[in-house]
């Protein structure tokens, strides 16, 4: 379970303080597959970062009773000047995973070919995304935070990601943020809408999408 209590987050900009999240309360249970719909700039990525613990809220608290991945997106979590294989070794060390098995698993799943032994900065964005996802699967989290990348990436890999997550059905939670209803429909069983700094949960996927499209 992950519980958010009264989360507020604002950023200081040259134009003054801009509030992004204005009081978010939510609970996500183990095994749920939740899509969070929001327009560009609604604060989807910010919300994911706070849940991941990458950034901190200005006020409110986050309770994590399962292991939570880093936000899976185009950037972050890996180091660009070392190779994909070295990144896998590093992840294995800090998450206490067997090193050689992790390196092998990531190599198989990410399908980077010879690039696996080259610095990450030489990768295409699709390759970086594949590496990031493979690394997080190797750690085997209970909750995966996904920043709509899977849908943007090539479809074959997207299908494998979906299968990998589906295989963990009961024991893994998915929080996917997206501005595209179809993406949410493909991966999730329920949804929430992030609008004007607040999050509203809907048990029914279609209802959430209808509300989102009407907004």
């Amino acid at each position: 379970m992950i519980r958010l209590n009264g989360i507020h987050k604002s950023y200081k900009t040259h134009l003054g303080t801009r509030a992004v999240l204005r009081g978010i309360d939510a609970t996500f249970q183990l095994g749920e597959k939740i899509g969070i719909l929001g327009r560009n700039g609604a604060g989807k990525t910010t919300l994911l970062r706070l849940i991941a613990g990458v950034e901190y809220p200005n006020s409110g608290s986050i309770e994590r009773r399962m292991t939570v991945s880093w936000p899976l997106g185009f950037a972050g979590a890996m180091h660009y000047s070392i190779s994909g294989a070295d990144n896998a070794r590093f992840i294995a060390r800090i998450y206490e995973k067997p090193i050689e098995e992790t390196v092998g698993f990531v190599e198989d799943f990410a399908e980077l070919g010879e690039y696996y032994r080259l610095p990450v900065r030489t990768y295409s964005s699709g390759m970086i995304m594949r590496l990031g996802f493979a690394l997080s699967l190797a750690v085997d989290f209970e909750c995966y935070l996904v920043d709509e990348v899977i849908a943007v990436g090539d479809t074959r890999f997207g299908e494998r990601c979906r299968k990998a997550l589906a295989d963990r059905q009961a024991r893994s939670t998915l929080l996917l943020v997206s501005h595209i209803p179809d993406t949410v429909r493909a991966f999730c069983t329920s949804a929430a809408v992030l609008n004007d700094g607040r999050l509203t949960r809907y048990d029914d996927l279609d209802e959430a999408i209808a509300v989102y499209q009407a907004a």
Binding site: N58, R64, T67, E96
Partner: peptide, 16 residues
């Protein structure tokens, strides 16, 4: 108050 994190440090499998 500014964010109480019951588990600010949470490697895999650790909950207590």
């Amino acid at each position: 108050m500014s964010g109480t994190f019951r588990h600010p440090v949470l490697p895999h499998g650790l909950r207590k």
